[in-house]
Amino acid sequence: MAADHIDAPAVSGGTSDITDYYAFQGENTSNIAFVANVQGLLSPGNTAAASFDENVMIEFNIDTSGDNVEDLVIQAVPRDGKMYVFGPVAPSQTGLNSTIMTNTNNLVVVDITPYGQSAIVESSGGIMAFAGPRDDPFFMDFAQYGEIIAGNATSFNDPGSDTFAGTNVLSLVVEVPKSMIGGSGTINTWVETKRKQ
Protein backbone atom coordinates (compact mmCIF):
# COMPACT_ATOMS: atom_id res chain seq x y z
CA MET A 1 0.00 0.00 0.00
CA ALA A 2 3.00 2.28 0.32
CA ALA A 3 5.17 3.27 -2.60
CA ASP A 4 8.52 4.74 -3.51
CA HIS A 5 9.74 4.37 -7.09
CA ILE A 6 8.03 1.05 -7.88
CA ASP A 7 8.61 -0.47 -4.41
CA ALA A 8 4.96 -1.35 -3.73
CA PRO A 9 3.85 -4.48 -5.66
CA ALA A 10 0.18 -3.40 -5.83
CA VAL A 11 1.03 -0.22 -7.77
CA SER A 12 4.45 -0.96 -9.23
CA GLY A 13 4.77 0.58 -12.67
CA GLY A 14 1.20 1.87 -12.54
CA THR A 15 -0.27 5.33 -12.77
CA SER A 16 -0.92 5.58 -9.03
CA ASP A 17 2.68 4.83 -7.97
CA ILE A 18 3.91 7.59 -5.64
CA THR A 19 7.62 8.25 -6.05
CA ASP A 20 8.09 11.00 -3.45
CA TYR A 21 6.26 13.48 -1.27
CA TYR A 22 7.52 16.83 -0.03
CA ALA A 23 6.02 19.51 2.23
CA PHE A 24 7.91 22.72 2.97
CA GLN A 25 7.53 26.41 3.63
CA GLY A 26 6.82 28.38 0.47
CA GLU A 27 8.94 31.19 -0.92
CA ASN A 28 6.26 33.35 0.67
CA THR A 29 6.88 32.33 4.28
CA SER A 30 3.14 32.62 5.02
CA ASN A 31 2.52 29.64 2.69
CA ILE A 32 3.19 25.91 2.75
CA ALA A 33 3.86 23.88 -0.38
CA PHE A 34 2.82 20.26 -0.90
CA VAL A 35 4.43 18.25 -3.72
CA ALA A 36 3.43 14.75 -4.84
CA ASN A 37 5.33 12.98 -7.59
CA VAL A 38 3.87 9.94 -9.33
CA GLN A 39 4.80 7.58 -12.18
CA GLY A 40 8.54 7.59 -11.68
CA LEU A 41 11.35 6.37 -13.89
CA LEU A 42 9.88 7.96 -17.02
CA SER A 43 12.52 8.20 -19.72
CA PRO A 44 12.61 11.45 -21.72
CA GLY A 45 11.31 9.48 -24.70
CA ASN A 46 8.27 8.23 -22.75
CA THR A 47 7.49 11.41 -20.80
CA ALA A 48 5.57 13.22 -23.55
CA ALA A 49 3.07 10.35 -23.74
CA ALA A 50 2.69 10.02 -19.95
CA SER A 51 -0.43 11.48 -18.38
CA PHE A 52 -2.16 11.70 -15.04
CA ASP A 53 -4.70 8.90 -14.75
CA GLU A 54 -8.25 10.28 -14.75
CA ASN A 55 -9.28 7.40 -12.46
CA VAL A 56 -6.69 8.30 -9.80
CA MET A 57 -7.11 11.06 -7.24
CA ILE A 58 -4.06 12.49 -5.46
CA GLU A 59 -4.94 13.39 -1.88
CA PHE A 60 -2.79 15.42 0.51
CA ASN A 61 -3.80 14.62 4.11
CA ILE A 62 -3.21 17.14 6.89
CA ASP A 63 -3.49 16.31 10.59
CA THR A 64 -3.64 19.47 12.69
CA SER A 65 -4.52 17.84 16.03
CA GLY A 66 -1.67 15.32 16.41
CA ASP A 67 -3.84 12.19 16.34
CA ASN A 68 -2.57 10.97 12.93
CA VAL A 69 -6.04 11.26 11.39
CA GLU A 70 -6.60 13.76 8.59
CA ASP A 71 -8.43 16.91 9.66
CA LEU A 72 -8.07 18.52 6.22
CA VAL A 73 -7.51 17.22 2.71
CA ILE A 74 -6.42 18.70 -0.57
CA GLN A 75 -7.68 16.56 -3.43
CA ALA A 76 -6.56 16.70 -7.05
CA VAL A 77 -8.34 15.06 -9.96
CA PRO A 78 -7.26 15.25 -13.62
CA ARG A 79 -9.85 15.70 -16.37
CA ASP A 80 -9.38 16.53 -20.05
CA GLY A 81 -5.90 18.05 -19.75
CA LYS A 82 -6.66 19.99 -16.58
CA MET A 83 -6.02 19.32 -12.89
CA TYR A 84 -8.86 20.20 -10.53
CA VAL A 85 -7.60 20.93 -7.01
CA PHE A 86 -10.15 21.02 -4.16
CA GLY A 87 -9.39 22.19 -0.61
CA PRO A 88 -8.02 22.39 1.90
CA VAL A 89 -11.33 21.20 3.32
CA ALA A 90 -12.50 18.85 6.09
CA PRO A 91 -13.06 15.39 4.59
CA SER A 92 -16.46 13.71 4.68
CA GLN A 93 -14.72 10.55 5.90
CA THR A 94 -11.23 9.60 7.01
CA GLY A 95 -9.05 6.63 6.16
CA LEU A 96 -8.42 4.76 2.95
CA ASN A 97 -11.66 5.70 1.19
CA SER A 98 -12.53 9.24 0.12
CA THR A 99 -15.24 11.23 -1.56
CA ILE A 100 -14.18 14.13 -3.76
CA MET A 101 -15.00 17.30 -1.83
CA THR A 102 -16.46 19.38 -4.68
CA ASN A 103 -18.56 21.43 -2.25
CA THR A 104 -15.69 23.72 -1.28
CA ASN A 105 -15.03 27.34 -2.13
CA ASN A 106 -11.33 26.44 -2.47
CA LEU A 107 -10.95 25.32 -6.09
CA VAL A 108 -8.06 25.84 -8.48
CA VAL A 109 -8.17 24.56 -12.06
CA VAL A 110 -4.84 24.45 -13.87
CA ASP A 111 -3.89 23.23 -17.35
CA ILE A 112 -1.51 20.29 -17.13
CA THR A 113 1.83 21.55 -18.44
CA PRO A 114 2.99 19.60 -21.51
CA TYR A 115 6.45 18.03 -21.44
CA GLY A 116 9.24 20.44 -22.34
CA GLN A 117 7.19 23.60 -21.74
CA SER A 118 7.46 26.25 -19.04
CA ALA A 119 5.37 25.64 -15.95
CA ILE A 120 1.74 26.68 -16.13
CA VAL A 121 0.65 27.88 -12.68
CA GLU A 122 -2.83 29.03 -11.71
CA SER A 123 -4.01 30.64 -8.51
CA SER A 124 -7.33 31.29 -6.82
CA GLY A 125 -8.10 32.54 -3.34
CA GLY A 126 -4.43 32.50 -2.36
CA ILE A 127 -3.92 28.86 -3.47
CA MET A 128 -1.50 28.11 -6.33
CA ALA A 129 -1.25 24.88 -8.31
CA PHE A 130 0.94 23.25 -10.95
CA ALA A 131 0.67 19.82 -12.58
CA GLY A 132 2.94 18.28 -15.17
CA PRO A 133 6.14 16.40 -15.92
CA ARG A 134 9.38 17.36 -14.19
CA ASP A 135 12.85 15.94 -13.69
CA ASP A 136 12.85 13.46 -10.80
CA PRO A 137 14.35 15.39 -7.85
CA PHE A 138 15.12 12.26 -5.83
CA PHE A 139 18.81 11.34 -5.50
CA MET A 140 19.70 7.71 -4.80
CA ASP A 141 22.77 5.65 -5.56
CA PHE A 142 20.80 2.45 -5.93
CA ALA A 143 23.76 0.28 -6.99
CA GLN A 144 25.76 1.30 -3.91
CA TYR A 145 22.69 0.78 -1.74
CA GLY A 146 22.52 -2.79 -3.07
CA GLU A 147 26.18 -3.29 -2.20
CA ILE A 148 25.57 -2.05 1.36
CA ILE A 149 22.55 -4.33 1.80
CA ALA A 150 24.56 -7.28 0.44
CA GLY A 151 27.35 -6.58 2.96
CA ASN A 152 29.90 -5.70 0.26
CA ALA A 153 30.17 -2.02 1.31
CA THR A 154 29.71 -0.09 4.54
CA SER A 155 28.78 3.35 3.23
CA PHE A 156 27.78 5.43 0.25
CA ASN A 157 30.38 7.00 -2.04
CA ASP A 158 31.03 10.73 -2.03
CA PRO A 159 30.08 11.69 -4.65
CA GLY A 160 27.57 8.98 -5.38
CA SER A 161 25.99 8.02 -8.66
CA ASP A 162 22.41 9.26 -9.13
CA THR A 163 20.38 6.28 -10.33
CA PHE A 164 17.43 8.54 -11.17
CA ALA A 165 19.37 11.09 -13.22
CA GLY A 166 17.70 11.65 -16.57
CA THR A 167 14.33 10.25 -15.49
CA ASN A 168 11.10 12.16 -14.98
CA VAL A 169 7.97 12.10 -12.84
CA LEU A 170 4.53 13.61 -13.08
CA SER A 171 4.41 16.27 -10.40
CA LEU A 172 1.58 18.00 -8.57
CA VAL A 173 2.44 21.11 -6.56
CA VAL A 174 -0.11 22.92 -4.40
CA GLU A 175 0.84 25.95 -2.31
CA VAL A 176 -1.63 27.25 0.26
CA PRO A 177 -1.61 29.99 2.89
CA LYS A 178 -0.79 28.54 6.31
CA SER A 179 -3.87 30.36 7.62
CA MET A 180 -6.01 27.87 5.63
CA ILE A 181 -4.40 24.98 7.48
CA GLY A 182 -5.27 26.46 10.87
CA GLY A 183 -3.22 26.70 14.00
CA SER A 184 0.36 27.77 14.25
CA GLY A 185 1.95 24.58 15.50
CA THR A 186 3.15 21.33 14.03
CA ILE A 187 1.15 19.41 11.44
CA ASN A 188 1.42 15.83 10.27
CA THR A 189 0.98 15.33 6.56
CA TRP A 190 1.04 12.46 4.08
CA VAL A 191 -0.12 11.80 0.54
CA GLU A 192 -2.20 9.03 -0.98
CA THR A 193 -3.32 8.07 -4.45
CA LYS A 194 -6.80 6.64 -4.60
CA ARG A 195 -8.28 4.79 -7.56
CA LYS A 196 -11.90 5.45 -8.52
CA GLN A 197 -14.16 2.61 -7.42
Rank of each mutant, 00 (worst) to 15 (best):
L170F: 12
I127W: 01
P91T: 03
P91W: 06
A90N: 12
A165D: 15
G116A: 10
N105F: 02
T94V: 13
V85W: 02
V109W: 02
R134D: 12
E122M: 13
S171Q: 15
L172W: 02
D111V: 00
P114L: 05
D158L: 10
T154V: 09
D135T: 14
S98T: 15
P88D: 01
A153L: 04
S171V: 01
M83F: 07
Q117E: 13
L96R: 14
N106D: 13
N103Q: 15
T102R: 13
Y115L: 03
N106P: 05
T102C: 03
A119N: 15
G125K: 03
D111W: 07
A129G: 07
V108D: 03
D135W: 09
S118Q: 14
Y115M: 07
S124G: 01
S118C: 05
S161P: 01
D111S: 14
G151S: 11
L172P: 04
T99W: 06
P114E: 05
V110Y: 02
A131F: 04
V89N: 06
N152Y: 11
D162Y: 06
L172V: 07
S161D: 12
G132R: 05
Q144W: 01
F130K: 00
G166T: 06
I100R: 08
V89Q: 13
V108H: 00
K82P: 05
Q144H: 07
